[in-house]
């Protein structure tokens, strides 16, 4: 009998916790929706004539850069990347792929290392462009 009372109490506690989490998520979501209504800062045109950082740095750290871009664009609406020498770039995959336009540019290394981020779930893969 005592055990049953205990488990019923626990059940209520878990239900309450789950309910409060759902409510918290809902409130948090509303806040995000307001944020996205801010006008986005943009660089006038995509400039792909030079790279945002040296080749060696990009080879080892492109995933960090792209992940940072994704977060700051989606969460904060900041679309301008300022390179260390002061030049400005648009935070977009198009900025990279405009110059690195070989269709297999990503694929070669990523298939070798078997690293499969989900970029192309949303973005158009260079291997699918006409």
């Amino acid at each position: 009998m005592e055990v049953m009372m205990k488990s019923r109490k626990l059940l209520w506690l878990v239900t309450f916790a789950a309910f409060s989490i759902v409510v918290a998520l809902y409130v948090f979501r509303n806040g995000e929706a307001e944020l996205s209504q801010k006008p986005l800062a943009r660089v006038s045109a995509i400039d792909s004539t030079k790279c945002i950082a040296p080749k060696e740095f990009m080879r080892a750290n492109h995933m960090q850069v792209l992940q940072g871009w994704e977060r700051s664009v989606v969460r904060e609406g900041d679309r301008v990347h300022i390179a260390s020498n002061g030049s400005r770039f648009q935070k977009s995959l198009g900025t990279c792929l405009g110059c690195h336009n070989n269709r297999l540019f990503c694929y070669n290394c990523h298939s070798y290392a078997n690293v499969k981020p989900k970029c192309w779930n949303c973005h158009l893969s260079p291997m699918e462009t006409p």
Binding site: A60, M63, Q64, Q67, C109, Y112, A113, N114, V115
Partner: peptide
Amino acid sequence: TRLDIMPVK
């Protein structure tokens, strides 16, 4: 850290 995986492989 998201280590660069190419030299590892």
